[in-house]
Design a protein around this nucleic acid. Structure first.
Lengths: 101, 101
DNA sequence: ATTGCATATCGAAAGCTCACGATATACAGT
DNA sequence: ACTGTATATCGTGAGCTTTCGATATGCAAT
């Protein structure tokens, strides 16, 4: 992971809503129990919109930021977009940060 | 460490120059070998100014940000101000982040 | 007391981030 | 084709961050 990538990752984490989202995605069955689609697809963008209380466009941008940083991936199914954590990347990030700090 | 404190800490790390400074302070004998004062005091603000290449006032603000976040402490000796890392706080931060992420 | 050095604080300009509503795109069902 | 739903993208305004030079503060030496 390059220094520029690390920078992008830390910046992605530097907004509380984005950290909340990452946290919710850790236990979808707890935070998104009401999702009609199987949680194995990931969590549907709309559900995340609801949970934050922010506007649809704002949350879409936050999700894009997290994805650009590599922390989450999306999987398109029909008209829905499902998001889930990249545990490996998150682990790598923590290792790298622990090293570099 | 409260959620607000964690937020302040992550924001403090979200600028590359501040991460550089933290990093340099990890091995002062490597990065500040030319300091006249004993490195046991910490590293003198002026030395850090030089190393960044930024203006004195800018670096002073970065140091204040790192200190407010708890990552570094300062010790005034005569007209100089010496900065050093708070290893314990840094460790706690990493533990907390690993937990919460 | 005055001068000089080290550092902090102030005020302003430039740039970045976040939030929103409006619009565009993409798919599904009729 | 048309309508509705889900999501992304665009444009904009408000607020925050970063940077600087200038100024203030605090200490040391003359």
């Amino acid at each position: 992971m390059s220094s520029a990538e690390l920078d992008e990752m830390i910046k992605a984490l530097s907004h509380p809503v984005r950290r909340d989202i990452l946290n919710w995605l850790k236990q979808p069955e707890v935070y998104f129990a009401d999702q009609e689609h199987p949680l194995s697809f990931g969590v549907c963008a709309g559900k995340i919109d609801q949970k934050t209380g922010l506007s649809q466009s704002t949350v879409s941008a936050h999700l894009a930021t997290l994805q650009r940083a590599g922390f989450i991936s999306s999987k398109k199914v029909g008209q829905w977009n499902f998001f889930s954590r990249n545990e490996e990347v998150i682990q790598q990030f923590l290792t790298r940060l622990t090293d570099q700090l």
